[in-house]
Structures are given as C-alpha cells and as structure tokens.
Design a binder for these strands. Sequence first.
DNA 1: TATTTTGTTCAAAAAAGCTTGAATACTGCG
DNA 2: CGCAGTATTCAAGCTTTTTTGAACAAAATA
Lengths: 187, 187
Amino acid sequence: MSNTPQMPAEGKQVRLTAWEIATIDSFVRAAALIGLPRSIGEIYGLLYCSPDPLTFDDVEIRLGISRGSVSGGLKTLRQLGAITLHYVPGSRKDHYLPELSMERLVRGFIKDQFSPHLASSAERLDAIEAELATEPDRTRREHGLQRLNTLRTWRRRAEKLLPLILAVLGGSRALLSQDESAPGDLV
Amino acid sequence: MSNTPQMPAEGKQVRLTAWEIATIDSFVRAAALIGLPRSIGEIYGLLYCSPDPLTFDDVEIRLGISRGSVSGGLKTLRQLGAITLHYVPGSRKDHYLPELSMERLVRGFIKDQFSPHLASSAERLDAIEAELATEPDRTRREHGLQRLNTLRTWRRRAEKLLPLILAVLGGSRALLSQDESAPGDLV
DNA sequence: TATTTTGTTCAAAAAAGCTTGAATACTGCG
DNA sequence: CGCAGTATTCAAGCTTTTTTGAACAAAATA
C-alpha cells in the first residue's frame, strides 16, 4: 500500500450503500438472465455505480469476493467489451470503467456469445444434409430435407436479426419511435 | 403394450438414425445457448425430426432418458408453447407435435423467460430511486440519479425491442428484406 | 371395485458450474 | 539481481442444477 508521494485515497469507502446494493442486485439478476455468473453481475454493477474508475483491489474489497473471481470476472467483462481500462497516472494498477453504451454492451455480448454458434451452425446443417443423403427410405429422406430446409430458414433469420437489433439500439435512434429524450449519461 | 385390435406400431424404430442424432445435437446446443437443459433440447429435437406425433414412451425409449426427465421436459416445452398435444383416436396416450413456427417459438420463450423480469425491473428501479433519496452526499446522489436515468432508458429500449423482434420474425415478412422464399414446412 | 395404463412427484445421486485461495508469473524499481 | 506490487492460474471445495427411478396419483377399462 504505497501510492507515490501521498496516499490520495482510491474510492475505498469499504461499505456499500443501500442504492449500490440495490443496483448491483439488478445487475446480478440481469447477468443471470443472460447466463452469466453472479460475480460478473456484481463487478459490472459496482463499476456502474462508481463515480470513478476502480482497481482490482477496490473490487475485491468492496464486494468481498475472492481474487480468483475478480480476475476471471474482469477478464470476461473486458472480453465482452463491457468494461474498459482507464489509465491513471502514478498508479501501476489497472483501473476500470464500465461501458455505458447499451448498443456496445449488446454488441459485445452478441459477438461473443451468439455469433460463434450461429456461424458454426451452418456447418452443422451441412453435416445433417450429408447424413440425410444416406437415408435409404425415400419418404423419410424427403421429410428430413423438409425439416432441414426449415432449419436453414430459421438460421438465416437469426442471422439477419442480430444486426437489426444493434441498429435499433444504436445509430438509428429513429427506429425506436418518437420519445427518446433521456438527458442522462451517454446511452 | 396393447393398442386396440392390432398393433399398428407407434413410431418405435428404437435406434436413432445419423441425421436424427446430428439434428438433435443441434437442438441440444441451441437449448444450452438459451439456458435450457440438455434433455429439453433432446426432446424437442426428437419431435422435430419425427414425421408423426410421438408419445411419452416413444420419447423415453428412443432417447434413452428417464421418465422424470421426459415428464419435466414435456411440461416445460408445453409451457413454452414449443410443442402441442395432438389427439390420436384410439389411443389414451398423449401425442406431441413440435411447434414449427419460429415466431411462436421465440414468442413463447420471451414471454416465459424475459418478460417477467422486464416487468419486475421497473419496480426495482423505483426501489433504487428511493434508496438514493437517502444518500446524504449531494454529488454522489446526483451521480446515482444519472445512472438510474440511464438504466431506465435501457429498460425502456429493451421493452420496445421484444415486440419488434417478434414482428420481424412473424407477420411482416417484408421487414426481413427481399429473399424469403423457402418453400419448406410452415415457417 | 380391482386392474391396467399413463403420467407426475420428489428425494437422492450425478453432473455442471462457480468460487476460493495458495502458488505462480509478470513488471518495474532500486 | 532481488524485491515489492500486481494480476493470473488452477486444483479443490462448494453450490446449484439436472437427472434418475421408485413411489404415488389419476383415469379409463373391465
């Protein structure tokens, strides 16, 4: 515990306030909803509440979770693009800020968790087609091809849907209909 | 094992074919992606492959999973609207068919897994606001209100997004752009 | 009513996933 | 080089979720 000359107090304040707890709770639920572990919801939630960037230890201490969880959680959040490193002069520690753009958050999540599956699914459908070719019974084979066809349609739609979602969340404010007028943070 | 007069063979054929295995595998992955257990992916996948409605025992036997899993899995799928009961004269068993409309599948999933959370989130945000009111430090409070504001914007957007997704997947074929021409099953 | 068929329940076992913390690696500094 | 500060790794433990299967309930049949 030695900063440089003085010790300007990182955002320590060990105890979480009531509103922080409530907010973090919301993020924990949201994380669960999309299949992410509790610790990740906690970490992002804490950063979301904080008025300034937090370090590894800030997170560990204020949340009271293990080093391992903090390390893994920050890594995942970085990968998702849900947090960004923020350089702080005079400190060797990494400082983190939450990403506050909903579009970027969703984009990161989709890119990381959905797109890969969507991509590989095309190959899997081709594999199904190959297997179907070996089906001896004509009627069954036809039926299988029918279903395969439907799957391909589904896949194509899903693929088209993702960019649309991003478009709606991001750039084209218009699509979201009339009353977008929140004056708050970036959004 | 006594049908009525004769024994017209339900879709028994105990062994799964290669293409069925490959298809079921795809559904198992898809299920995992959206946080549903393996058994549910298997059951839906099996029904999806089958040319005619299957019974409880068909599923149990062909998939080789336990009665408990079949019972629970069918229950969940029914609840999601992903399968439907199909009346078969002369049989006391329940027969199931897969829902083949992507729109209905997605709608069921959203209604069941997302909407409830989205609904309750509004209350949670109000709770945060209440807690914030007790924050003594002016600056912190303002900052918190800012963040709360952002959260409310996010929530509103999510709420507007869901119907849009359904619209794109369903009725308005137009939105999905020009080339929707799959001649297959229903879609 | 007794019997058979069909499906559900639920406690215990198994599997999967998350968290922990001690050991390890890396980096800049003296 | 050795040290101190910082962050990651990973095996072991813990928690949560899923699966199993035997007991139970319900409904049709005889």
